[in-house]
């Protein structure tokens, strides 16, 4: 019984709730916020899984992803700003 794995499964349930906002979201900004929330929770899940598998190398993926998720959200937001 790994406590970090249980926490990761709990985070996966929360990710499903954030995906629900991407599915339903009537406007595009709703979907962008849903995607950003999903990004951050996936980073947290990656770190929890790195602790569950007891491996240091797996944490580097989360660091790379934390930078790139920001860039992707910024691109979509700049597009929405130009259009408005």
């Amino acid at each position: 019984m790994n406590i970090f794995l249980i926490a990761a499964i709990l985070m996966a349930v929360f990710i499903s709730i954030a995906i629900l906002r991407i599915i339903l979201g009537p406007t595009t900004p709703d979907r962008v916020v849903g995607l950003d929330t999903t990004n951050m929770m996936v980073i947290a899940t990656m770190i929890l899984l790195g602790a569950a598998y007891d491996s240091v190398i797996l944490i580097d993926v989360a660091i790379v992803y934390a930078i790139l998720a920001f860039v992707a959200t910024l691109y979509i937001s700049k597009y929405l700003e130009d259009e408005a």
Binding site: I19, I22, G25, T28, R31, G34, T38, V42, V61, I76
Partner: peptide
Amino acid sequence: ILASVISFAAMSLLLAL
């Protein structure tokens, strides 16, 4: 299509996970 791209980004994110 913009919402479609957002959904695609979420898909590739989950695929990475």
